[in-house]
Each structure stands twice: as C-alpha cells, then as structure tokens.
C-alpha cells in the first residue's frame, strides 16, 4: 500500500467518488425507490399492491411459469455446458477451433438470436420444419403453440447461453491437475468413474457458481417474450419479468410493477444467500 501524507488523506475518496456516485444513483437508489413505490400508495403506507398480487391469478400463473422454465432450463444449460466443456478440454487436434465456435453465441445478442430463431421456427415457412419434414416428422407449431412456446424459448436461450457458462467450467477444468486422472487411469478407472468421482467433486465450487449465476440471470429473462411471444400464446410464456414490464409500460400500474420487481429481487437475494450458505458449509467441512 502506498502511504499518503495527512494533507492527501482525502485523495482515495476523490478517486472513488465518480464511480460511487454513479453506482448509488443508478444501481442502489432505484432499488430503494422501487421498495418504497411498492408500499407507498397515495403517500400512505399500504401493502395493497402485494395483497392485490396475492389475489391475482395471473400473477401466480407468471410466478409458476418463471419457476417452471428455470427448473428445466438451468440444469439443462449447466449439463450441456459441462459436457461440451469436457469435450473441448480434450487435447485432440483442432480443438481450439471448436472452442472458438462454441463461444460465438456469447458475442451475439439474445435479441438477434430471437429474431433469427423466430423466423427459423416459423410453422409455415421455417427451415426447422423443413428439416423435420426431411426426417419424416410432421411440421410443428413452435412459438404459436401453447404447449411448445415455452420450450422453444428454452431452446433459444440455451443456444445463446451454453457457451458463456462453458467458459467458467472450462476454466475450472484447466485447474484440475492432470496427474490425478493419470493415477486414476492406472487404477483402472473408466471414463464415467473419472467424471463422477474426480471431475464433478473437484468442480463443485465452479458448478455451484454457474448454477447460481445462471439462475439469477435467467429468472429475469425478458427478451424472448418481448421479441417473439409477447407472453403468449394464452399467457403460456408470461414470466414475471415480462409481467412487471407490461404492468409498468402497458397498463401504467407502477405499484404492481414495483411489487413484482421487489419479489424478483427477493428471489435473487435468496438464491445468492443459498450459494453463500453452501460454500460456507463446505469450507467449514474442510477445516474439520
């Protein structure tokens, strides 16, 4: 650490001031206002917005859809990211090119991904149906089907997301000492045994991080609903984030929107606490 003379004591505060001012105004203050907005109606304290929500079936429907899509999508993305990371971690020739290819969707916006997939998944003139027909499978309805739309969103988000989460897992894999595998091989362990007994336990911390970071990101998934489905068909893709957006910008109901945002924030905090708890537990276990 550099020492500062008494006259210069204030310097670090000057240096961090611009960043903190911006963080406060644009990151922390909005959270405070949304908390207030959700409980202060006509300048009086009121839980009306929350009570209304609790009696509102479309809110419960949105909450359920948000949970449902994440319950499927997060494990799916982490699993695929893990498997692809294993593939790319091999020392086979030309593997670097494949790794770069798998990273490409990371640089492409979800908006573009949605636009292109939406046209490809068009029921009447989409190329995906054309390929399905080629394989003898009849055309599907995809985004206009109540039962398929949500899973098509999972497909698009997974296409876009896997490369990103793979980066973390791959970085974790690189940290594992190769010698461990070699000694396991000498002991006659097969591929499956090595993955489940060595790789997964050693990657626990990274995998947990990916799980949590992925969940906090996707619990707020919004773009596919805005660009493709509009929450439909028949509310089947109407996640909480979209509902909050609609409440604020389509129906002008700010208290309702704020209350939903607060609920989303609480969910995110709970997930982060859950991660911290699991990590602590493990570190204490190590000490023993």
């Amino acid at each position: 650490m550099l020492h500062l003379s008494k006259k210069m004591r204030f310097l670090p505060y000057v240096l961090i001031l611009p960043a903190f001012l911006l963080i406060f105004i644009f990151k922390l203050y909005p959270i405070i206002t949304t908390l207030l907005e959700s409980v202060v109606i006509d300048s009086e304290f009121s839980l009306e917005a929350y009570i209304d929500l609790s009696e509102d079936s479309s809110f419960w429907n949105s909450l359920w859809i948000t949970i449902k899509i994440n319950l499927v999508m997060i494990p799916l993305q982490v699993l695929i990211a893990f498997l692809v990371a294993l593939l790319v971690n091999s020392t086979i020739k030309g593997v670097g090119i494949f790794r770069t290819i798998f990273y490409l969707p990371v640089t492409i916006s979800l908006t573009i991904a949605c636009l292109v997939w939406n046209i490809m998944l068009n029921p009447n003139s989409g190329v995906v149906n054309s390929i399905l027909n080629l394989a003898g499978i009849p055309s599907q309805d995809f985004f206009i089907s109540k039962s398929q739309a949500l899973w098509c969103i999972v497909l698009v988000a997974t296409w876009k997301g896997v490369g990103y989460w793979m980066m973390f897992i791959l970085a974790g894999l690189k940290n594992i000492d190769v010698a461990i595998y070699e000694s396991a091989k000498i002991d006659g362990a097969g591929w499956w045994k090595m993955v489940t007994r060595i790789t997964v336990p050693l990657l626990k911390k990274v995998l947990l991080f990916v799980f949590v970071a992925n969940t906090t990101a996707n619990i707020l998934l919004f773009v596919p609903m805005q660009v493709i489905t509009g929450g439909g068909p028949q509310e089947s893709t109407n996640v909480l984030m979209f509902e909050a957006y609609q409440s604020a910008f389509k129906y002008g109901d700010r208290p309702r929107s704020s209350a939903i945002v607060v609920i989303l924030l609480v969910l995110i905090v709970l997930i982060c606490l859950f991660q911290a708890l699991l990590l602590n537990e493990k570190e204490e276990g190590k000490k023993k």
């Binding site: 105004i25 644009f26 990151k27 909005p30 959270i31 206002t33 949304t34 704020s258 945002v261 995110i268």
Partner: peptide, 19 residues
C-alpha cells in the same frame, strides 16, 4: 461494489427508468 454487481441489471431496469 461487489453487491452492486451481484444484482443483475434487468432487476433494476424498470425502477431505474423512473429515476
């Protein structure tokens, strides 16, 4: 600082609009 980057931007976008 750490806290501010644990909160995804989308979570504050709607209230931020009002600010």
């Amino acid at each position: 600082v750490l806290l501010s980057f644990m909160i995804p931007f989308e979570a504050i976008a709607l209230p931020l609009y009002k600010v």
